[in-house]
Design a protein around this nucleic acid. Structure first.
Lengths: 334, 334
DNA sequence: ATGAAAGCGCTAACAT
DNA sequence: ATGTTAGCGCTTTCAT
């Protein structure tokens, strides 16, 4: 079970009749090698199908750029969009990007981090990861940026955050303006900073609107379940005893589950039940009715992360906030 | 922009007062080192937070297992499920898995492959990749398994395939039995083997049922568009001139787009329009109406790929077929 | 049970 | 313009 390509820089060198140093120079594009020699070397590389061993190179150079993104859930378009923005930038610069899916699981995060350190990862993007402050602290000589993750040492690394609380206040205000009063809030377990902030925003807005809310927050506690299913089950439970006139879901995927439960009860949407989601996924766009939701510039945030990772110094450390747009479609009564 | 962890095996050795060889022995779990020494070394490793440089180790050992999965689209739950099965197995064995998203793009596939060879990848899983026979041939000393991808040299590597054509025949037969006659077929560009086979199965079944079909195949040619959007647009075009009584979509995501277009025309589903999807995604389960579709054991296939990659020899090369289950829900009239 | 030393493939002084 | 050589961090004989 080998796996190693047989041909090395030495093979190229002997074939051409030059030293390995010359070949190395050609590979790195040095101008110091004669055009004729370069051509011969290039030909040999082509003929032998030589591909430099990057492990050896980085061992020697001590500084290959290897980045990693830790994200909770690849199946969630929200995270995937961020990663794609990041990955595109990395690819364009020939930088390795390891993608690790951590399922909101501390042990997996820890294991992945251990592995990543072993392969000499130099830049980390932590997206919505759970309790990893200690782990981040253990990273030395590395660049770090967090997204949707508050890091204790405020000004050590850049942190990209969203105005979640404000969004939820906007959602409540909007629902109230459309005549809703019995407004429930459905959310996955409060793993991420966003989820925490969204909940807080909801509560605050309900309080200000002088609407009761303490019993209308419905948090899922099953961490294995996917989000649509969780939303579905939670909504079914609610509908067993109540009939809300509005539901705010902490994510579009949740909202889709909510819709299914409501449909099974023959509730008319949006007439009898208004729904607001979050994330502006395509699934919300294609749901029935099309979902009113919030949109974040996800891809752009992935690109920002790249820039912050490669940017000169850490003078950009600290929190930066990205604001979401409110997308009004047909899931709230007009 | 360093990135390298400072502490090396040498630091550990000097701290304990032993040679690097001994430390190496401890790390690899050799029984030849005295219990007392082992304890001291382990303590030092812990205190110094030493993590072995895997690049150096693999350079020396010449055979670290590094696997890679090339898949067209992470956003498609179909592929993601396969990758997760594979990844779980790899993680459990401490094997690196690089995940590369190739967007059905030959150039990206080529670039990723080049990179992967550079980091000494020893096992490749090609899932639904495009024209890469030549590229696969260029891989030497490697294990390879393909999924949903026919490789020219039939018996060189294991190939996991599905009974797509049979499924589509089953779909047509079922629709006919439910009274449908004007059955259209909507598909993304024919990139993968599956898509090709599904189309073929549809045509064959329509032929056998003596139903016209040549003008009812609708292929998307925009490769940038996501699948829901493509399905939506194609269906709108169809509805401009025709009113099918059934549509078979080459994937659930397509079917969701189709539903949206139909809903906008106030078509009742399934009464006026029956729909069959493929892939059994959650989105189909939560669509309105819930989608009749086909289910493949995706996660299991990812695990199979792992087994084939690590399995002793190549005596298992050749094609193996996985069969899909027909999931009847409410999107076809009863 | 432990150490000394060679060498994996590559790069970067330094020498010519 | 090209060659020689040391050494990155690690594993693995081979000695002791």
């Amino acid at each position: 079970m080998g796996g190693y390509t047989k041909v090395t820089i030495k093979d190229v060198a002997t074939k051409v009749g030059v030293s390995v140093a010359t070949v190395s120079l050609v590979i790195s594009g040095s101008p110091k090698v004669a055009a004729k020699t370069r051509r011969k070397v290039l030909t040999a590389i082509d003929e032998l199908q030589y591909i430099p061993n990057q492990n050896a190179a980085s061992l020697r150079k001590q500084n290959r750029d290897v980045f990693a993104a830790l994200i909770p859930d690849l199946n969630n378009p929200f995270y995937l969009s961020i990663v794609r923005g990041l990955k595109d930038r990395c690819s364009r610069q020939g930088i390795v990007l390891h993608i690790s899916e951590t399922r909101h699981d501390y042990d997996i995060e820890k294991a992945e981090l251990h592995f990543l350190r072993g392969v000499q990862t130099s830049g980390y993007v932590f997206i919505g990861t759970v309790l990893d402050d200690d782990l981040i602290d253990s990273l030395t000589h590395c660049r770090v940026v967090t997204i949707d993750k508050v890091y204790g040492q405020k000004d050590r690394y850049p942190q990209i955050l969203f105005n979640n609380a404000a969004c939820m206040e906007q959602a409540v205000t909007y629902l109230v303006s459309q005549g809703c009063r019995d407004i429930w809030y459905i959310t996955p377990p409060i793993w991420t900073h966003s989820q925490q902030e969204r909940l807080r925003g909801y509560q605050q807005a309900m309080h200000q609107a002088q609407l009761p809310y303490s019993e209308k927050v419905c948090i899922s506690y099953d961490s294995q379940m996917n989000m649509m299913e969780a939303g579905y089950i939670q909504m079914k439970q609610i509908l067993a005893n109540h009939q809300p006139d509005a539901v705010i879901a902490a994510s579009d995927l949740y909202a889709i589950g909510v819709m299914r439960a409501a449909r099974e009860q023959n509730l008319k949407m949006p007439e009898e039940l208004s729904i607001v989601g979050f994330d502006n996924t395509l699934y919300g766009q294609y749901s029935h009715p099309p979902l009113t939701t919030f949109s974040l510039p996800l891809k752009r945030m992935g690109e920002m992360a790249y820039e912050l990772l490669t940017q000169d110094s850490s003078h950009s450390a600290g929190k930066m906030y990205v604001t979401a747009d409110f997308i009004i479609r047909d899931s709230v009564r007009q």
